[in-house]
Design a protein around this nucleic acid. Structure first.
Length: 286
DNA sequence: TGCTATTGCTCTTGAGTCCT
DNA sequence: AGGACTCAAGAGCAATAGCA
């Protein structure tokens, strides 16, 4: 049983989504306001075009995500866990820049559900002492286990090793955490662990600590995952929102040569237990 | 061959840039 | 100031590779 993250998707919701998709596909003509025949309606492209349009609108909207991050970072600042933060804006390849209490700069890249090629696109800004990715997934029907694994192994590990991009860690945390859509085992019977921030009632974040150096087959095959106090921004979140030591995920990336192939092995360890481990898999990039 | 794991594609939106 | 244009991002899933 894979356990890359404690929560899981709601099977009933998935089932209903699948059922309703079928209803849409077969009954959409009944909603046609143009008075077409059923045949004409499905031939017209209106159905497919509308689906794409709605999907694009949902994908492109960042407003809710930014509101969430703003609440969180303000809360951290108010509590004295960070000095200040700014939105990086525009041409930058990261989204937020946070000044930690010790004066170091942490850059944050905001991402979605992590399943998608776009997850690879990020860059550690030169002024940053640390660089983390924050996954904010607003899709209630998404599968967090699939997405976390996809993000960490298929996207990040390949990118970190092949492109020599250093990423210090990952936070998986959004306003669906702890709601009925994404029940959080961390707060089962532990209401006292919930933090209220603006309109949100949040469990502690899920934190993944990556190695502090880039794995390389000859020079650095098995770099160790960092500790929480090595990554200031993650440490601040962890403390601010009441995370437990045994909830921290250590992510191991190992690099090796298999013949001419560069292969990597990804392993997620939490509370001393291996939660998921890949086989040594080649990095295929076109 | 058939299944699973991994990687790339597709589409739309919206923010930023560059003009007038 | 405001319009036209450019381009990156999010999400699901199609395509491909690997393995039994």
């Amino acid at each position: 049983m894979n356990d890359e993250i404690p929560c899981q998707k709601d099977p009933q919701l998935t089932e209903r989504i699948e059922q309703f998709s079928e209803v849409l596909k077969t009954q959409a003509h009944r909603l046609d306001p143009f008075g077409m025949t059923e045949q004409d309606f499905y031939d017209s492209g209106i159905f497919e075009g509308s689906i794409q349009r709605v999907r694009g609108q949902i994908s492109a909207s960042m407003g809710e995500k930014k509101t969430f991050v703003k609440h969180i970072l303000n809360h951290m600042q108010d509590g004295g866990f960070i000095q200040e933060w700014i939105e990086a804006g525009g041409s930058n390849r990261h989204d937020y820049s946070v000044t930690l209490n010790d004066g170091k700069i942490a850059a944050i890249e905001l991402k979605g559900c992590l399943d998608g090629n776009n997850t690879n696109i990020s860059a550690r800004p030169p002024h940053a002492n640390e660089f983390i990715v924050w996954s904010v997934c607003q899709n209630k029907g998404a599968d967090p286990r699939h997405n976390v694994w996809s993000g960490i192994h298929t996207r990040f590990s390949a990118d970190i090793i092949a492109e020599e991009k250093r990423v210090d860690g990952l936070v998986v945390w959004d306003w669906l955490c702890g709601t009925a859509a994404r029940v959080c085992p961390k707060i089962a019977g532990r209401e006292d662990r919930i933090t209220e921030v603006g309109p949100y009632r949040l469990p502690p974040p899920c934190i993944y600590l990556f190695p502090g150096t880039i794995p390389s087959p000859r020079n650095n095959p098995t770099p160790r995952p960092q500790n929480i106090n090595d990554v200031g921004i993650l440490d601040a979140m962890h403390r601010c929102f009441g995370g437990d030591e045994n909830e921290l995920n250590k992510v191991h990336f190992e690099a090796a040569m298999n013949g001419v192939d560069l292969v990597r092995t990804t392993k997620i360890v939490r509370d001393g237990i291996v939660r998921r481990e890949s086989k040594p898999t080649p990095i295929r990039r076109s």
